[in-house]
Nucleic acid binder design. Sequence first.
DNA 1: CCGCGGATCTTCT
DNA 2: GAAGATCCGCGGA
Length: 204
Amino acid sequence: MPDNDLAPLPRDFYARPTLVVARDVLGKTLVHRSAEGLTAGIIVEAEAYVSAIDPAAHGYRGLTARVRSMFGPPGHAYVYRSHGIHFCLNLVTEREGEAAAVLLRALQPTEGIALMRARRGERIADRDLCRGPGRLCQALGVTLMHDGADLVTPDPGSLWVAQTPNFALETPIATSPRIGISRAADWLWRFYIPGNPYVSARPA
DNA sequence: CCGCGGATCTTCT
DNA sequence: GAAGATCCGCGGA
């Protein structure tokens, strides 16, 4: 796959309403290039978080050190540590100061599967390599080092989102409540590709 | 297959 | 002190 096909999406893609980005990012490819090699997968599940109106969003109660990147400009990464152990990757959306982002919850692995398995465990099935927000970060080698990283003009050896070559344009998209939250628990702000086996959970 | 607890860092009450 | 945008391994059905 030539690098031309993996060109980063422009900042305009991120500087839109978060619900639109969360839906539109399905079918795009997340890429991480590091010294270990290149890993990538098709985004099959994502959730929207909009601090201005959303009590489940990390920025809802204002700026803290952890959530600083979410308040920054669109087209950057917001990576946070979850439950002390795992990392979760968000794409910052809207405009600087809005603290809106899209959480990536699952990928269909396409490149660097052997490297993903080296990071995740040799016995992990393909289906489980990137199924879940913490798992996909582990599989791609995404850590707090990537918090705040620019996804549009990425440094060499970093992280971005690209158009997926030959991806079907008319892929169906489903919605459901977001996973694992207690506030705004009935909002249909989770988007996923129905029937795709790499999606982390089926709707309740 | 399902439910539960442990790991362990940030934020909130 | 407790909860949280999680995951894994264990025990029981």
